[in-house]
């Protein structure tokens, strides 16, 4: 057991004991950062930003909409990377982290859809438009649901990790395809990427600064919940092992 020595590479954290020890102090720090940054970003955005001359006060929804949409996609990318690590290097913490990330990503997708609908109502006059971005988020949500359902349907942990990883890889390709399909299928009402660098469409710093803070806050929320969820999964796994051992001795 080499757990006394200093970790020499990132892969050392594939060791669950080391991961637990690291996340033990990292989790409170990240959680505190998440609360502080999100609170600053949202309070700044809600109370201290001017109304947009066209969109009125609805522009304030952006401080929820964009960060949650960002994390909805990034959570899936993180699951993809974790699944690859599991498939290639068989690091169990990685598979458990992917499992823990899925519900978080699903809720982020839901928040993005909800804020989008509430924002779309006054701006486009409809709660839901079959504009390319909305359906592709709905499909992303369905992918999350399927992934979570597959995890919970399989009893054997190793099998579940393998199958969900394969699903995640295939699903990523098809999610990307669906996105292009949706863009092909309808040119929409949705504005393009809000932070694009094209001159003229750029946002004012009065909005950009709190938006960046809120985005950082949402990233930290994700990391904190991910750490907490992974710790729970590792504990659940340890419990399963202990119970199995008990049964063996009985």
């Amino acid at each position: 057991m080499t757990s006394r020595s200093q970790p020499s590479s990132l892969w050392e954290y594939a060791n669950p004991v080391r991961f637990m020890r690291l996340s033990d102090w990292l989790l409170p720090v990240v959680a505190l950062g998440a609360v502080v940054l999100t609170a600053i970003g949202l309070i700044w955005g809600f109370f201290l930003t001017p109304d947009d001359f066209r969109q009125g006060s609805t522009v304030k929804i952006i401080f929820l909409h964009v960060p949650s949409a960002l994390m909805a996609i990034n959570a899936w990318i993180m699951m993809l990377v974790a699944s690859l690590i599991w498939l290639i290097r068989r690091h169990h913490v990685s598979a458990l982290a992917a499992k823990a990330a899925a519900p978080i990503g699903a809720v982020m997708t839901l928040i993005a859809l909800f804020t989008g609908a509430v924002w779309g109502q006054p701006m486009w006059g409809t709660w839901w438009a079959w504009d390319p971005r909305l359906p592709s988020f709905l499909i992303l949500f369905l992918f999350y649901l399927g992934y979570i359902a597959l995890w919970s349907a399989i009893d054997d942990a190793d099998t579940a990790a393998d199958l969900t990883s394969v699903l995640c890889l295939v699903g990523s390709v098809f999610a990307l395809l669906s996105r292009y399909a949706a863009f092909f299928w309808s040119q929409g009402l949705h504005q393009g990427a809000s932070l694009s660098l094209q001159p003229g469409t750029r946002m004012d710093w009065a909005y950009k600064a709190p938006l960046y803070v809120a985005m950082a806050g949402f990233v930290l929320i994700f990391v904190a919940l991910l750490l907490a969820g992974t710790r729970t999964e590792i504990r659940a796994r340890r419990m399963k092992a202990l119970i199995a051992r008990e049964r063996m001795q009985a």
Partner: peptide, 9 residues
Amino acid sequence: LLVLPLYVP
């Protein structure tokens, strides 16, 4: 649930 989203494109 798994297959239908894959059918979208």
